[in-house]
């Protein structure tokens, strides 16, 4: 399940862009692969992000997983609810499980991201090669 209106990265993040604001989270595929999310290390409001650079950490029972910024810009909002309820990422990865809002510094970067169809194909290929 990869909503059409979102854009995706090969590291399994999504962005929902409206104007200069990009809401960022991890995909349904990512949360399933991770399993139960038990801790989220959020960025701070005001942090600068670089496309492809580390900007948050999601931990499941078994694994530590970096979250890479899908776009460059400035963190203007973070989902504090995840501190107490990290499992929201499993329950609603594209909704209440959002991680942060980034104000874009270079909207042109959005062209580097994948469409839902391209991401689905990418994940399909990855799944085929895995377990």
């Amino acid at each position: 399940m990869y909503p059409k209106e979102l854009k995706y990265t090969r590291e399994h993040e999504w962005v929902r862009v409206s104007g200069k604001r990009a809401i960022v989270g991890i995909t349904d595929h990512a949360q399933k692969e991770l399993g139960d999310v038990v801790f989220v290390e959020l960025p701070a409001v005001g942090d600068t992000t670089t496309q492809g650079g580390e900007f948050a950490v999601v931990e499941s029972v078994k694994a530590v997983s970096e979250v890479y910024a899908p776009v460059s810009g400035t963190v203007v909002e973070v989902n504090e609810n995840l501190s107490d309820h990290p499992e929201t990422i499993n329950q609603d990865p594209y909704g209440d499980g959002w991680i942060a809002v980034i104000e874009l510094s270079d909207p042109g970067e959005l062209d580097n991201l994948l469409s839902a169809d391209d991401y689905a194909a990418f994940v399909g290929g990855e799944e085929g090669g895995g377990r």
């Binding site: 399993g35 139960d36 038990v38 499941s60 029972v61 078994k62 377990r131």
Partner: peptide, 19 residues
């Protein structure tokens, strides 16, 4: 889902670790 553990291919989880 399986994982390698001590030379064995073992189930690491079925529905989810917490459940």
């Amino acid at each position: 889902r399986f994982t390698a553990f001590g030379g064995w291919e073992m189930p690491v989880q079925y529905t989810g670790i917490v459940a």
